[in-house]
Computed example of a mutant assay.
Amino acid sequence: MVIIYGQRHALTPIKGLLSDTIHHVMQQVLGLPEGKRAHRFISLDSDDFYYPSDRSERYTVIEVNMMQGRSVATKKRLIKTLFELIEQEVGIAPIDVEITLQEQPEHCWGFRGMTGDEAKLNYSIKV
């Protein structure tokens, strides 16, 4: 699951493009299937979203929640590819993007009536 935070006036016009870009990177780097898009946009009013003074109003925070298992190299490639393609495709400079990866063991995920360690996934998390 990916959660994207930003100021409403800056985030709303680019939601679709940003979601497409993020999902493309997740497919390219992590091997996620096309239908495995789970993005949540949190659009905040300006007085509800404080950010560093050296960032612009386009400052965007991206939290990627995923099961443990990816290598350090894969996680670094994910972050760097997100920076690169978000700048190229969406026009947000890397200085205005903050990315965090949140990992939990498979047994801490619940979906389709089971835990993640019981599920038969159609992609690998050991990349």
Rank of each mutant, 00 (worst) to 15 (best):
residue 21 T to W: 05
residue 31 G to Y: 01
residue 30 L to I: 14
residue 4 I to V: 14
residue 40 R to V: 15
residue 29 V to N: 05
residue 102 Q to T: 13
residue 47 D to V: 02
residue 6 G to C: 02
residue 55 R to N: 12
residue 71 S to I: 05
residue 41 F to L: 07
residue 81 T to S: 06
residue 62 I to K: 02
residue 10 A to P: 04
residue 75 K to V: 07
residue 52 P to G: 02
residue 14 I to D: 01
residue 37 R to P: 08
residue 20 D to M: 14
residue 90 V to M: 13
residue 106 E to Q: 15
residue 26 M to F: 07
residue 82 L to W: 04
residue 73 A to V: 10
residue 95 I to N: 11
residue 117 D to E: 09
residue 52 P to T: 11
residue 74 T to V: 09
residue 78 L to R: 01
residue 42 I to M: 01
residue 72 V to R: 12
residue 51 Y to R: 09
residue 86 I to M: 00
residue 126 K to L: 13
residue 23 H to V: 07
residue 47 D to C: 05
residue 126 K to P: 03
residue 18 L to C: 11
residue 105 P to W: 12
residue 47 D to M: 05
residue 119 A to H: 08
residue 5 Y to A: 00
residue 69 G to C: 14
residue 126 K to V: 09
residue 89 E to V: 08
residue 115 T to M: 11
residue 110 G to R: 10
residue 69 G to S: 08
residue 125 I to C: 07
residue 20 D to W: 11
residue 107 H to S: 15
residue 58 R to P: 03
residue 127 V to Y: 06
residue 111 F to R: 13
residue 11 L to N: 05
residue 111 F to N: 10
residue 38 A to N: 15
residue 72 V to G: 06
residue 56 S to R: 06
residue 36 K to E: 11
residue 20 D to Y: 12
residue 32 L to V: 09
residue 25 V to S: 02
residue 81 T to Q: 11
residue 47 D to I: 07
residue 33 P to W: 00
residue 85 L to I: 07
residue 88 Q to I: 11
residue 95 I to L: 11
residue 31 G to R: 00
residue 43 S to N: 14
residue 124 S to H: 10
residue 117 D to K: 09
residue 44 L to K: 12
residue 8 R to P: 03
residue 60 T to V: 08
residue 13 P to K: 09
residue 102 Q to H: 15
residue 115 T to H: 15
residue 103 E to A: 04
residue 94 P to T: 04
residue 49 F to V: 08
residue 64 V to C: 13
residue 121 L to Q: 02
residue 90 V to H: 09
residue 67 M to V: 12
residue 70 R to V: 12
residue 69 G to Y: 09
residue 28 Q to G: 09
residue 51 Y to H: 07
residue 41 F to R: 00
residue 114 M to E: 10
residue 80 K to R: 12
residue 10 A to K: 10
residue 81 T to N: 04
residue 95 I to A: 13
residue 87 E to A: 04
residue 81 T to P: 07
residue 119 A to F: 13
residue 55 R to T: 02
residue 19 S to N: 12
residue 92 I to W: 00
residue 33 P to H: 05
residue 13 P to N: 09
residue 42 I to Y: 01
residue 75 K to Y: 08
residue 91 G to P: 07
residue 48 D to S: 06
residue 94 P to W: 01
residue 76 K to R: 15
residue 32 L to W: 03
residue 8 R to Q: 15
residue 42 I to W: 00
residue 51 Y to W: 09
residue 26 M to C: 11
residue 18 L to D: 04
residue 48 D to A: 08
residue 20 D to Q: 15
residue 64 V to K: 06
residue 120 K to H: 10
residue 82 L to S: 02
residue 120 K to W: 06
residue 75 K to F: 06
residue 100 T to C: 12
residue 47 D to L: 05
residue 75 K to D: 05
residue 15 K to Q: 14
residue 41 F to V: 02
residue 89 E to F: 06
residue 70 R to C: 03
residue 61 V to R: 00
residue 43 S to I: 12
residue 23 H to D: 06
residue 43 S to G: 15
residue 54 D to W: 13
residue 5 Y to M: 03
residue 50 Y to H: 07
residue 72 V to N: 13
residue 32 L to F: 15
residue 42 I to Q: 00
residue 35 G to V: 01
residue 7 Q to S: 06
residue 72 V to E: 14
residue 28 Q to L: 10
residue 7 Q to H: 04
residue 67 M to C: 10
residue 118 E to D: 11
residue 11 L to Q: 01
residue 36 K to R: 14
residue 87 E to H: 05
residue 61 V to M: 01
residue 81 T to I: 07
residue 94 P to G: 04
residue 99 I to M: 06
residue 120 K to E: 14
